[in-house]
Design a protein around this nucleic acid. Structure first.
Lengths: 353, 353
DNA sequence: CAATTGATGGCAACCGGTTGACAAAGCTCC
DNA sequence: GGAGCTTTGTCAACCGGTTGCCATCAATTG
């Protein structure tokens, strides 16, 4: 049944492949066609073009397919069509828990809609990122870039080739999913103001991060509104360690409340301050960004401006898949809300003891 | 140059594909052959079989390929060969941070060796897992199963088809990567014994988890060695929430030290105990497993038996790729060491106040 | 100098599913 | 009963590499 069509080569069996395709799992539409007594192309149509063949033939073919437990060969399908039912997700840093939820959201949506997720990381390097993106482009139907580091033009160039969705950054002409930071930030700043704080520090993230710039803008605006002083501090890297390192600057700044570019910085900062005997939140209030996994493990648990990361991931995937399946608009930007998650690391400012 | 070979169909242009392959990025070996003045098959050989063509022709072809900035079409290659330069990783639960490091390790190794990682999750369901595995089998060269929930026979069945590597479980006849828990556990138990504890509770994980069983075995053995009492408690699910729920049982058990199946349980348990006014570690010592991201965010930071998860991921990927590239042995098991990470959640037992 | 050998490139079949063109069959309607 | 239209299935080309077999040609050897 499944013998090769060229009987002559069968004479030289060749090396026995340990994991050959000689199992029972490799029925083709030709096999089905033979069993059902129709032409292979009819089988193809029955299996992919709904309604193109008569109900009777349809059933015949489906039965045969089931009997042979047929599964399409994705490569054979991808070759002529270009469709792969696969999309790529490139994250700046797999180490960073911010992306965990994004990955999860994207993966879940992919599975639900019968797509497969392919994952890559750029190690925070624009060059690596572009390389990975190019490589992926060949094998996927579309691409999601989470917090991309490459410049806008490169992103648009990729988007010209296949659908691309960007997370955590706005790029003209490309569909994006961005948390709208204003609501969360203004909630946070108002809460700090209400607790008697007068001077707020913002610990910035990587210089090339679009989102860091947005957050600093938002903090400035909100502070102006609430008539608070805002100072900006720089971090070396957006990690727990970076947070520890910036503690000195924070104390020197004289601010009684700190917002950090992300939760990792906040956690590191809090650890270092507490180690130095500073009581959080009595002496300094700390507010992070993102509400990553583990943000509530700390003592006190971290107050943070939550970005719905899972929603970002699934939203981006949905946007992309809609685009792929032709029911997408164009380059629309999906805005998701941020909100303040009030926990223990921020609160009333007590008079210095 | 790149016009279709059937000029008649060009008369009916068809719908303009927004993301067609009409860009400049789709040179084929035929284009190269034309430029270099050789046969397509020669191009194919030059590009994949080292030394099969003369150095002169090789150069000619490589230049032409570079000029056209050619990239192989992975599908066209996969179709006749079955090779895809891709492997799959199925994790029980993307939500669970245990897998983050595993994913990262596997992804890094994949990239280094020019493979692509495809990710899927099974949502802790054996059925979903098997479905995902089957689906993947069609598109990957090999598979890594991290903490699989399906039974041994199904794993072996998959392994018969293509190379499979299992993480966090031992399956006869299949290469595995398992943390050797004994060292870490005995360190942990000895430390507890030295601190005056006499009764230790173990909070178990999912009943079908191989690793949970191993850890319980290890705890029993170590306790016997150190002449401690060991009691086993059950958790509803291996999460922070599950840890909270088991707090009542822990207190009722009379144990002064607890080892939990994983860090999430430990963290939840600690939160709940602290909320009830129990002082950790003065009244109860808590030891987790895995040393996941965030295990040191808690106050006190969590003592835990570290499994080198990243190493598991990269080790499994290496094992798999070696197998794929023919330099693997057979079903060898890679054992990685565990070690006690002593932090603040365990320590000397103070006399009850 | 002829014969043997090895290196090199070309030919053509093949992987498995897709799709435009077309023909046969079925159906309606006058 | 036949013209005209719609359904349904077949044919064959095609996607882009891979590879066994063979022809060619140059190099080596007796």
């Amino acid at each position: 049944m499944t013998e090769p069509k060229t009987p002559d080569v069968a004479a030289t069996p060749g090396p026995v492949k340990k994991h050959g395709r000689d199992g029972k799992s490799n029925a083709t539409i030709y096999d089905i066609a033979k069993v059902a007594g129709v032409n292979p192309s009819t089988v193809s149509r029955a299996l992919s073009k709904p309604g193109r063949v008569s109900a009777k033939t349809q059933k015949l073919i489906e039965d045969a397919a089931a009997e042979l437990n047929y599964q399409v060969n994705p490569f054979a399908r991808a070759l002529p069509t270009g469709r792969t039912s696969t999309f790529g997700l490139i994250v700046a840093d797999i180490t960073n828990p911010t992306f965990f939820d994004i990955i999860r959201g994207a993966e879940t949506t992919a599975t639900v809609r019968d797509y497969t997720l392919v994952l890559a990381e750029s190690a925070e390097s624009a060059v690596t990122e572009l390389t990975a993106a190019r490589r992926m482009m060949a094998t996927v139907d579309g691409l999601i870039l989470a917090s991309p580091r490459m410049d806008d033009d490169n992103i648009r160039a990729l988007a010209r080739d296949k659908p691309v969705v960007v997370i955590n950054r706005e790029v003209d002409g490309v569909p994006c999913v961005v948390p709208d930071v204003d609501k969360g930030i203004s909630e946070a700043v108002r809460s700090l103001a209400a607790n008697g704080h007068r001077k707020v520090a913002f610990v910035a993230g990587p210089p090339q991060s679009w989102m860091s710039a947005r957050r600093w803008d938002g903090v400035q605006a909100a502070c102006e509104w609430s008539r608070l002083d805002a100072v900006r501090l720089e971090s070396t890297k957006p990690t727990v360690d970076g947070g520890r390192q910036v503690a000195r600057d924070v104390r020197a700044s004289g601010a009684t409340a700190v917002l950090t570019y992300n939760d990792l910085l906040a956690i590191g900062l809090m650890q270092e301050l507490q180690a130095a005997g500073v009581v959080v939140p009595d002496q300094i209030s700390i507010v992070g960004f993102d509400d990553i996994f583990g943000a509530d493990f700390t003592t006190p648990p971290l107050t943070t401006v939550r970005s719905p990361l899972g929603e970002c991931g699934s939203g981006a995937a949905t946007l992309l898949l809609d685009l792929l399946q032709g029911r997408g608009e164009g380059a629309e930007t999906l805005r998701v809300e941020t909100e303040l998650v009030l926990r223990g690391s921020s609160g009333r400012l007590l008079p210095a003891g």
